[in-house]
Design a protein around this nucleic acid. Structure first.
Lengths: 222, 222
DNA sequence: TTGTCGATCTCGCAT
DNA sequence: ATGCGAGGTCGACAA
């Protein structure tokens, strides 16, 4: 096992173990059968038989160590900044495998917020007739605005994009940008804020109304 | 492999494969060496040599199918509501392992927001001298308030808790609760909003000032 | 390093 | 099923 880590191989260990973690938080996990994966980039994963997320883990950049104490295997994975330590103590090991892996990680993904932005820029009328995009990621004191532009009457428009149905948080985000711009441009001219997503929840709709913001239903292409 | 899935065992497959996904979004991943994990609860994970998150996945509740097409193994994992499908097509398999797993998933975790709440309830003076908690998770039209109480002068106080340093989003959250309560109680009496976390970012601090909200630095115990 | 925000977020809980 | 918020969120990108 230690040799496999040394060789920068991927290592999987299955067996009965306990897990301790201390770092940004702290946790204890009693004995059980789990799959442990150590990656050459310093990632550690502890998976139970349920759930998509590991029950315990360590992020990339950690250094893994395998020790033998009282005839039992312990895996210790550490990092600094923030200081964190994960310890997996096996009482029984069913299987160990190692793989020599190199992967060109060329995932192509569609249906993202970026795709929605492209769609809006190609067809600005989806926002409303006469809308003219002027910039994306335009900086404000409150953060970057997804799409910044003008309506047919020359009024400034702030557009916030979300790829899926949104709740109150997205409205808060849009509101921050609008308020920051009103402050920044100290323009008395009203700035319009438009939320674009497939749909909104009831609370989000109410919040939009309270804040005087607008909603247009558009989703990512396809 | 199919038999292992039938028996509700955990299955790991390592080999060279391509991956297609279509559902909430859609993705394509070219050939490469990956570790595929199929869990008895219907979770599928595709891990490369890097990163803590799987490059592709399927959530719990999916049904896995293993097919042989042109002498090549294909794993298909489907679910409905939303409809999603993940396909892993192997061109070479290095190793297959199965495990019979049952795990009582009894993780104990410290350092959470809940721990911070307990700390505040035990020592309300950490908020400020004379603060009296009246309720947790108090409902408002904008959602549940973490801690709801009164200050020494009898003014209503809304407390929002965060276990770590926070940004603008947490301020927006607190502001929504305060505004909802002011509306709900249609009280002319001002309602105080206090954000409690170890620290805040600059923008968050500015937002707090703009909204007339307050900040107190407290973190989870230890 | 820190800040900010998207994510096929996941997960748990309540309605 | 949907809504809402926490998370050791992770990951990417910018300052």
């Amino acid at each position: 096992m230690a040799a496999a880590i040394e060789r920068d191989e991927m290592l999987t260990v299955f067996g009965r173990c306990t897990v301790e973690y201390e770092g940004r938080a702290a946790s204890h996990l009693g004995p059980g059968d789990r799959l442990v994966v150590l990656k050459p980039d310093g990632t550690a994963l502890v998976h139970t038989d349920e759930g998509q997320k590991p029950v315990n883990w360590q992020p990339p950049g950690c250094s893994h160590e395998v020790r033998l104490a009282d005839g039992a295997v312990r895996i210790e994975s550490r990092r600094t900044g923030p200081d964190e330590e994960l310890t997996v103590a096996f009482e029984r090991i069913e299987q160990v495998s190692t793989f020599d892996v190199t992967d060109r990680r060329d995932l192509s993904l569609q249906g993202t917020e970026e795709d929605l932005r492209q769609r809006i820029l190609e067809t600005p009328d989806l926002v409303e007739e006469g809308f003219t995009p002027l910039a994306t990621e335009r900086e404000t004191p409150a953060g970057a605005v997804d799409v910044y532009g003008r309506d047919r009457d020359g009024r400034t428009v702030v557009v916030e994009l979300k790829r899926k149905r949104v709740g109150p948080d997205a409205v808060g985000q849009l509101d921050r940008y609008v308020e920051a711009l009103e402050r920044d441009l100290h323009a008395n001219a009203e700035i319009r804020g438009i939320l674009i997503s497939p749909s909104v929840t009831e609370r989000a709709r109410n919040l939009l109304a309270e804040k005087g913001l607008e909603f247009v239903s558009v989703g990512p292409p396809e």
